[in-house]
Amino acid sequence: MSTVESTIAARKAAGSGALIGYLPAGFPNLQSSIDAAVALVENGVDIIELGIPYTDPVMDGLVIQEATQRALENGFKLEHAFEAVSAITARVSAPVLVMTYFNPVLQYGIERFADDLVAAGGAGLITPDLTADNARSWLTAAERTDLDHVFLAAPSSSDARLRLAVEKSRGFVYAVSTMGITGARADVDSAARSLVSRLRDAGSTNACVGVGISSSDQVREVLGYADGAIVGSVLVKALADGGVPAVARTAAALATGTIA
């Protein structure tokens, strides 16, 4: 098993599931983003999802868009993501997955990106705009370097696409809880439960739900039927409003939802 898979397996064996926390690299600056990611792990987050700021983040809601735009305005470069991964993994043992739209990977060079991510201690890649049927070059590089490759599944996905996402993903399948962009919601769409059920039917053993999760109660609800809960916007907002101490408190509160 990969480090992501073994982390999820350990949490499931404990009678719960994994808490996955998203933060953008370079927000509000590079060092603060590193400290914030470390604080997540120190306060109950099991897996880090480190986002690479991008100029056209079509899946991201306003909170994350504003954060990534600020990172770019402050001079964030792709190389800084590898610096951040290296600094985080030097301080905590939790796996770090990088979330990025695929154009920066293409511009950087797929093989070079994979090599540099491995060298930094990264666990793999989440690619929201790259579908499993168009990912041959990335899969070849990821398999060569033993990196996880996480593909997304949506409520609108056909059964055939779900089977392909399950077949080609390593680490977990990212089950998008609802149609639309990221952002905290009062209720996680009931479509998430149905989607995870369909992923199980397609053979998935690791399905993690993201988009819209913002409270410990929602984390607990999701972990009742999925293998992991992915939280982003509420953590980014906490970091924006109150810095690293606020994101640490928010992570600790969310982590109470993982208690079996």
Rank of each mutant, 00 (worst) to 15 (best):
S2D: 04
T3Y: 00
V4M: 01
E5F: 00
T7E: 00
A14Q: 12
S16T: 02
G21I: 01
G21Q: 04
Y22R: 09
A25K: 10
G26E: 06
F27L: 12
F27A: 06
Q31T: 07
S32P: 01
S32M: 05
D35L: 11
A36F: 15
A36S: 15
A36V: 15
L40T: 07
E42T: 09
E42C: 07
N43L: 10
G44E: 10
G44I: 13
V45N: 09
D46M: 06
I48K: 00
D56N: 14
V58T: 15
D60P: 07
L62R: 14
Q65H: 12
Q69N: 10
L72K: 10
N74E: 11
F76I: 09
L78W: 03
L78Y: 14
A81N: 07
F82W: 06
E83H: 15
E83T: 15
V85L: 08
S86L: 07
A87S: 15
A90D: 14
A90H: 02
R91E: 15
A94D: 05
A94R: 01
L97E: 00
V98F: 03
T100M: 13
Y101D: 08
F102P: 02
F102S: 06
P104D: 11
P104Y: 08
Q107H: 08
G109S: 12
I110L: 09
E111V: 11
R112P: 03
R112E: 10
D116A: 07
L117C: 10
V118G: 02
A119L: 08
G121N: 11
G122H: 01
T127V: 15
D129F: 12
T131Y: 11
R136V: 10
R136H: 03
W138P: 02
L139S: 07
E143C: 01
E143V: 05
E143G: 06
L147E: 02
D148I: 02
A153T: 13
A154L: 14
P155G: 13
S156T: 15
A160Y: 12
R163G: 14
A165C: 13
V166H: 00
E167H: 10
K168E: 14
G171R: 00
F172T: 01
T178I: 14
T178S: 14
T178N: 13
G180H: 13
G183H: 12
G183S: 10
R185S: 08
R185A: 05
V188S: 03
A192Q: 04
A192M: 05
S194D: 14
L195T: 06
L195S: 04
V196A: 13
S197L: 06
A202V: 05
G203A: 10
S204R: 01
S204H: 02
N206D: 08
N206K: 14
C208Y: 04
V209T: 07
G210L: 10
V211E: 00
I213H: 02
I213W: 01
S215T: 15
Q218N: 09
V219G: 01
V219T: 01
R220G: 00
Y225T: 06
Y225H: 04
A226W: 03
A226P: 11
A226C: 13
A226D: 05
I230P: 07
V236W: 02
K237T: 03
A238W: 02
A238M: 11
L239V: 12
G243I: 12
P245K: 14
P245N: 05
V247T: 14
A251I: 08
L254D: 03
I259Q: 12
A260I: 01
